[in-house]
Nucleic acid binder design. Structure first.
Length: 767
DNA sequence: CGTATATATCTTTTT
DNA sequence: GATATATACG
């Protein structure tokens, strides 16, 4: 794909000539104390309110402070009223934090600032203008599950082989189009249109139509519909352009094309756009983010002032040096040099790099280190474990539970994604929006009402024939003899109940409605009768769900919250070690950071590399950079020689990033015998072998064995006849699986007897 | 129509 | 090892 921006040449703008010099501030404000805490660059970024500003801000250079202070400064100087300021972030967390900090500076008037994620702000705009893009203002926001189900239905109609062309892949293609601001009409034969023999665009079109009849929008639509709205209605665009005197953008390097266009349209009039970003922290290109937007900025706003923040106030010089050294392996950076902004700072401890035998060992070591820190008086909430992917968390959670060290998971399994909660939400969605067929299908037979596939099929046929929703179709069909009497009454009852619940909205608060619906529908009852071990937990969750509704006065607001925020703030407050992915760690900082799993194929991630090659490698490296720069004082990195993937053991080699760290800033220690005993004698056991192991992997790759299976390849890690993963029999302990090999000593996990260390001569292979 | 058993695919990262 | 879909049977 060439330059995605070319596609949008029909958009009604060109770089505008710079505005005549801005008028002096109406009320010159006395510089408040908080301004004096800023360094000259930060201050410049805050005080340059007029015209476009690009702030290139490295990790830990105080970018959030700049943004919040800038908003406060604008308000204090009466350059704009609160609602004339628009501040956009990527995550809800960033939005929340920013709101808190601005309120702290200027008080409750900050409530009225338009501050939120791109998506949340877009929803706000769309609810007001829904009709203009073919929706009603109570439209539903679909999650990715709904999207996939919908796409599957459409593909079924077209008789597309769902094995060959997974709906998920199509969703990805459509999402990428939407990320680039492309409606079906604009796609024009590029990027993934080879899907299903070129039928992707047609499917995209059908999908969009279907969304309209469902009165629903997916995530990408929130932005895309805004763009359509702005481009088709100059008057509406004009109103918003007029309204937003000042626009600020956080994490600018993560904007995609659609978001960029959105910003460019909204800021055309006043041109007071301030973008804060760091190309070295661009880690969302897989979601359509365009680092190019940073370069693009100076082209579209030739008079832009560029401010560089390079003084780091967060980390020790050692950590900074390690991060800088690592990221220097990337090409095509804008090039910032991060230096410490702290005075009289100590060099800091070297980064500890440790190689261990396997994942369990890694977790044991890591939690031991945490306990040592804890005994030395370090607060647990100042410690974080950052992993590449969610599945890596499990091992540490288990270890935390057995040791009793308190921890919390950020962005783990989400509350609103639980089955029972989604069901409950579906009930509410259907109440709020009767055309929501996806919600209808989800709950029509939960609890069992004797309405199975055949009934649903008939409903579908009727709905399609008459062009109405499933809800409406059930009303109509229940007046006929189309269905068996049993199904007919069940359906009529359901429709009647639904009508009653819907009318409750006039008089009753959402929490009460939810409680009643879940009770009357028999949904609660269904779980009470459920004998599975999950039953009680689900009931608890439902209770929590209802009580979480307490603070909401209208159902629509709550449903938006569910789809846009999706997070579980319930146990957010508890103190403990934080466990999260590197992606969600961006923007945070901790005294101590642990980064386990630095192994080839995990980090850098294999799939990413297969998909996007060198480009992905650089993004993985940026991710490593983000991770290291989260640490204020201490960083730990580890890798394991063996890891269980799915159900098989495979050996792994250290991440290439380990070697890209500067030797003088790390302290390497590894368990002996990690990679066999061939090399031996080195100060860093295992390390000597990695080069050889790597080139082996390289050869295999060049020979075309790239499907990962070869890696596991049950490589011999010892001289005896057993391999990791082998099933064996032992006279005393019975059957078990080999989990570790150290010369003739085997570590075996026995089915009955647990984990034991035994000698190989006492066991025999078994199938 | 509902239940039980087998199976395939999964694990990148998120609004 | 878990979850969602497919299939067979009651």
């Amino acid at each position: 794909m060439s330059d995605p921006f070319e596609l949008n040449d029909d958009l009604p703008f060109e770089p505008l000539a710079p505005k005549p010099a801005a008028a002096a501030p109406p009320v010159p404000a006395a510089p408040p104390v908080w301004l004096e805490k800023l360094n000259p660059e930060q201050r410049q970024a805050v005080e340059t309110t007029e015209g476009p500003v690009l702030v290139l801000s490295g990790a830990g250079t105080g970018k959030t402070r700049v943004l919040t202070t800038r908003v406060a400064w604008i308000l204090m100087n009466r350059r704009a009223r609160p609602w004339q300021v628009l501040a956009v972030t990527f995550t809800n967390r960033a939005a929340r934090e920013m709101r808190e900090r601005v309120m702290h500076l200027v008080g409750p008037s900050a409530e009225a600032v338009w501050l939120g994620t791109f998506h949340a702000i877009s929803v706000r705009i769309l609810r007001r203008n829904a009709e203009l893009v073919g929706l009603k203002s109570n439209f539903t926001i679909l999650d990715s599950d709904d999207q996939i189900r919908l796409l599957k239905q459409l593909m079924e109609v077209d008789n597309i082989d769902s094995k060959k062309w997974p709906a998920q892949a199509l969703m990805g293609v459509i999402q990428r189009w939407k990320d680039r601001g492309l409606t079906p009409d604009k796609v024009g034969g590029q990027g993934g249109s080879d899907f299903a023999d070129g039928r992707a665009v047609a499917l995209y079109r059908a999908y969009q139509e279907r969304l309209r009849t469902l009165n629903a929008a997916d995530f990408g639509d929130l932005l895309l519909h805004c763009l359509t709205l702005f481009q088709s209605r100059a008057d509406i665009l004009g109103e918003y352009q007029e309204q937003f005197h000042y626009v600020l953008v956080d994490e600018y390097q993560d904007t995609n094309v659609a978001q960029y266009l959105w910003l460019r349209l909204l800021t055309q009039k006043h041109r007071n756009l301030c973008c804060v970003g760091d190309d070295d922290q661009s880690i969302y290109s897989w979601r359509g983010a365009e680092v190019g937007n940073i370069l693009r900025f100076e082209k579209d706003f030739p008079d832009a002032k560029v401010v560089r923040l390079e003084r780091n106030y967060r980390s020790t010089p050692t950590i900074l040096a390690a991060a800088s050294h690592l990221i220097a392996h990337n090409e095509g950076r804008l090039g910032k040099t991060l230096r410490t902004g702290l005075e009289n700072v100590e060099q800091g401890a070297p980064i500890k790099v440790r190689g261990v035998w396997d994942g369990a060992e890694e977790a044991r070591w890591l939690v031991d280190e945490i306990e040592t820190l804890q005994r030395a008086g370090h607060a647990l909430d100042q410690i974080a474990i950052l992993v590449r992917a969610g599945f890596q968390m499990l091992e540490f959670e288990e270890r935390f539970i057995t040791t009793g060290v308190p921890y919390r998971v950020v962005g783990g399994p989400r509350f609103y994604e639980r089955l029972e909660i989604r069901d409950a939400v579906a009930y509410l969605r259907l109440i709020q929006q009767p055309e929501d067929d996806l919600a209808f299908e989800r709950i029509i037979n939960k609890p069992k009402r004797g309405l199975g596939d055949t009934t649903i099929q008939k409903l579908h046929i009727l709905a399609r024939a008459q062009g109405v929703s499933l809800m409406e179709a059930s009303q109509r069909i229940s007046e006929t003899d189309e269905l068996r009497p049993q199904a007919r009454t069940a359906l009529a009852n359901f429709a009647r109940d639904m009508e009653r619940w819907r009318s409750l909205r006039e008089t009753t608060l959402p929490a009460e409605i939810a409680a009643q619906v879940l009770e009357d529908s028999g949904y609660i009852d269904m779980w009470q009768k459920d004998k599975s071990p999950e039953g009680p937990g689900r009931l608890d969750n439902l209770k929590e769900f209802v009580s979480g509704l307490d603070e909401w006065e209208n159902l629509g607001g709550f449903l938006d919250h569910v789809s846009l925020v999706m997070e579980n703030d319930a146990n957010a407050g508890e103190a403990g070690v934080t466990l999260m992915t590197l992606h969600s760690a961006k923007g945070l900082e901790f005294d101590t950071v642990f980064m386990p799993g630095w192994e080839e194929d995990i980090f850098p991630n294999r799939r990413a590399l297969d998909e996007s090659g060198e480009k992905a490698l650089e993004e993985e490296r940026r991710l490593a950079y983000v991770g290291i720069t989260r640490a204020r004082r201490r960083a730990f990195i580890s890798f394991a020689a063996n890891r269980r993937v799915y159900n098989q053991w495979q050996s792994s080699i250290p991440s290439r990033f380990v070697e890209e760290l500067p030797k003088e800033n790390i302290e390497q220690e590894s368990d002996p015998g990690l990679y066999g005993h061939r090399g031996g004698g080195g100060d860093w056991p295992g390390f000597n072998d990695t080069a050889g192991a790597r080139s082996g992997a390289g050869i295999r790759r060049r020979m075309g064995f790239t499907d990962g299976a070869t890696y596991e390849a049950k490589e011999r890690v010892s001289t005896n006849e057993f391999r990791i993963g082998d099933r064996v029999f032992h006279q005393k302990f019975g059957y078990g699986i080999v989990e570790g090999i150290d010369d003739s000593k085997l570590e075996i996990s026995f089915d009955k007897a647990g984990r034991k260390k035994v000698l190989d001569s006492f066991v025999e292979p078994s199938t």
